[in-house]
Design a protein around this nucleic acid. Structure first.
Lengths: 129, 129
DNA sequence: CTTGACCTTCCCCCAACTGGAAGGCTCATA
DNA sequence: TATGAGCCTTCCAGTTGGGGGAAGGTCAAG
């Protein structure tokens, strides 16, 4: 299996897969006689695992930890759960921040006429008036 | 006014202020005889404007546009409002995404015992079981 | 024999800074 | 006068998670 094929199967670009290898997130792929990377069906599962974890917002460093736990058959599910809960907390913080920013902007836009006159409460607020 | 003083007044680090100058977000500061940057009280207002816009999540490129509008006394408030509304839409999208990710993670953690046994629905889901 | 689709490595680019090195300036104090 | 603290200067590199594209090797089809 060439990198292009596993790329299509996993939805990750070839660039991304090479990048994951370069930072040691996945082990160096075997090489064919011509120097091409050779992937096994097993590698599809690993890359999909990574892809899903990324979709859930885990950083590559966190993914590294998840991969370790995944391969550790003696792991404690508490460790995984702790990571997930911490991640949820971070997401909640981020949502809070965004909500606050959004509310401020909504208030400002409501007070802005939005016509061809220059008076603008949004700019006035940014200017600290 | 040295860069350190305007830094304390605006809450932006000296590094950041130099960076803003380097990318042309603010004009090059005047220099004193010793080569130090010299700031006027007026510059405090500009930097605070930038800082507030950043707090509201505008990118530096958007801030550039806001600064232009701010200085343009013939601006139409509709232009500012359009930027703000678009920004709000982007924030709402981001919140939606985060909510979805959070919900998924919450569901998964609820099904995970979180004890010293290895069975873990979180990892199973990532593995695509 | 050539064409096109692969693959390889390499280095630069993005945002929005931050950290640190190496050096110059200024002022107070011993 | 020296020295030390605390400013300031420029420049280079690193962060996250890759993307773009060059220069070149490989492979199968026509």
């Amino acid at each position: 299996m060439n990198i292009g094929e596993i790329s299509r199967e996993t939805g990750l670009t070839a660039k991304t897969i090479r990048y994951y290898e370069s930072i040691g997130l996945i082990p160096p792929a075997d090489r064919k006689a011509n120097g091409y990377r050779a992937y096994a069906p097993n590698d599809v599962a690993t890359l999909k695992f990574i892809s899903r974890a990324r979709t859930l917002g885990f950083s590559l460093d966190e993914v590294r930890g998840l991969l370790t736990l995944w391969h550790d058959k003696a792991r404690a599910s508490a460790d995984v759960k702790a990571m997930a809960l911490e991640h949820i907390a971070g997401i909640e913080d981020r949502i809070q921040e965004l909500e606050q920013v959004k509310n401020t902007l909504v208030h400002l836009t409501e007070r802005c006429h939005g016509d061809d006159r220059p008076e603008c409460p949004i700019l006035e607020d940014l200017a600290g008036s």
